[in-house]
Amino acid sequence: MTNFKKTLLAAAALLAGSTAAYAQSGLNDLQIAHSAYTADVIDINYAKIALGKTHDPEVKRFAQLMIQDHTAVNEGAGALLKKLGVSAQDNAFSQALNKGAAAENAKLRSLSGRAFDREYARNELAYHKQVNSIVGDTWIPAVQNAEVKEFLAQALVTFRVHEEHAGHMVAALR
């Protein structure tokens, strides 16, 4: 099976909400870098929606932290790619991530008040859990370049902290 076909399969699995086929993603280093960057941008955009809607100071603080930390990670990614003299490659997996995000963005925009806060928190926990699983179980083992691997490992530490933080936020909003 070609890498492209594997990627399409993984993207389809992501849209279906399954993580079972992530290990078959078959992405190369530059495609993984692009997907990681895309995942960061998606979470930054969720946070921007949250800042425009929430009145909860803790939710607001979390959203500000997401913008700050994910922006910093992407700046790190950009610096590394520049140092390596390469560019990230758009791919079907990144596109699938964006499609999933568009649906969630629409859902978030339709909500307000406590319902919004709860959905934002729920999605942050689920999203970080899902992305962390992909980064830790699939991308880090698959990446060939040592510096990209180290970058992803450090990014994963950041995202795991966010996942834990999101878990607390979900609990607090029950």
Binding site: Q68, D69, A72, V73, E75, G76, Q154, A155, T158
Partner: peptide, 8 residues
């Protein structure tokens, strides 16, 4: 202190 993380 030196920050070696990407996150501030």
């Amino acid at each position: 202190w030196t920050n070696k993380d990407f996150a501030p």
